[in-house]
Design a binder for these strands. Structure first.
Lengths: 226, 226
DNA sequence: ACAAAAGTATGATTTATATCATATTTTATA
DNA sequence: TATAAAATATGATATAAATCATACTTTTGT
């Protein structure tokens, strides 16, 4: 973990939601880190040491089930807060966070973060709102797993990725993931995910090019879900 | 909706987490309601008018998928806050809440609740913490749906109900639900749920008596999950 | 630059669980 | 208290998707 100091005190979730006069305190406490592709930022069951803010790169937030199986819960991007899932009653990360590319982030130790919450009610409120949105999302996923078939869930996954990361000029979703990770995010196996996506490509609803996926017919994907 | 005034300004989530000097303001704004068994307190897609605090009775929090299918997300009991799932970006309840028996609750309009959050940082913090716990729970459920079979999920459901509601002297879980509701909570169909629970009863891991379910061998249920 | 590991690609087989069908019992309501 | 409506109970059947098997390709580390 190389340490740098790239924070501009503006772009991250913490700085965006803090009082101006609190920024010097952040400046004094923050710790910039660089983490290489594939390396873990923190691991499930680790005691919560602090909260991270992502400046550059992408991070997957995931969790093991048994020792083989895996589920991806979230993909974080620039400006996002990471580690907040550990703020429940037990001060243990319920998930792991792994860098998808070389990642630059800012670490704030938990004690200072808790103080920041006390000093900045707006920060606490913003975090609460973030949780509210995430909870809504998570519970929609629960229902989708129970009531939708895999093809619909693959459709939903692609639409979510497009919404979160956008599509580039070539019309591909702006995030590059392995099919295995996509499957773990959609809540299915690699094989099934692969079959579904090739099927969608065959009927020109999506296009594939290596690891890139582009959505061609958004409305058709939406219809699959409803 | 009969209106009463049964709040003691002590037991509910709001009063528990407020500054003492804020209680008179709550007293002035609260609105007690009585809702009959089977009636809806609010419905999914309704604009958020306020937050409810449950004094007496049980409430199921649920959501429709399509027009047939249904999923139960939460069972609320005395002291619990209801309606907080609607505090995300869009001010719309993402779920419905239905009384499982005659229910007494206290309604706080959203404007006053938001003010309460601003005035009481501890309240905002407590709510944030509640969300953190709920999110953790929801994401564990996601993984369970993906990676556990129905029997294990039924086991998990029973253990959760026991943890949340306890077991009475006769050894039955302290909440009475239809098998259909239990199935909708476990994320399966009535028929499959029924088969699983009778199977568990046959091997004396649980006992059944009408709508009552009692856990006999907790460790065996836990083993089913792992 | 090369070996090992990870990821991609598909077909065949199995299995868990939803769906369908139907009878009985309990609960709600007029 | 009658009658409709839910809820319970179980067997038979269909099927979606996981698992297994295997070959090929790309990426990564030394």
């Amino acid at each position: 973990m190389k340490k740098g100091n790239l924070c501009n005190l503006k772009s991250c979730f913490l700085c965006r939601n803090c009082l101006k006069h609190w920024l010097p305190a952040i400046e004094a406490h923050k710790q910039n880190l660089v983490i290489k592709k594939g390396q873990k930022i923190f691991e499930e069951e680790d005691p919560v040491t602090g909260i991270y803010f992502l400046f550059k790169g992408r991070v997957k937030v995931h969790r093991k089930w048994g020792d083989e199986k895996q589920l991806i819960l979230h993909f974080a991007q620039e400006g996002d807060i990471i580690g907040y899932r550990g703020l429940g009653n037990q001060k243990v990360y319920p998930v792991s966070a792994t860098a998808l590319d070389e990642v630059t982030l800012c670490f704030i130790d938990i004690a200072f973060f808790e103080t920041s919450l006390q000093v900045n009610p707006r920060l606490t409120y913003a975090l609460m709102q973030l949780y509210a949105n995430e909870l809504q999302l998570a519970e929609r996923r629960i229902g989708n797993l129970v009531h939708l078939d895999v093809k619909a869930r693959v459709a939903e996954t692609l639409l979510m990725l497009k919404r979160d990361f956008g599509q580039n000029k070539e019309g591909f979703i702006n995030i590059t993931l392995t099919k295995q990770d996509l499957a773990s995010y959609a809540g299915t196996t690699y094989e099934t995910f692969f079959r579904m996506i090739t099927e969608l490509a065959k009927v020109k609803i999506v296009k594939l090019s290596g690891k890139n996926i582009g959505i061609l017919k958004e409305t058709k994907l939406e219809k699959l879900i409803a």
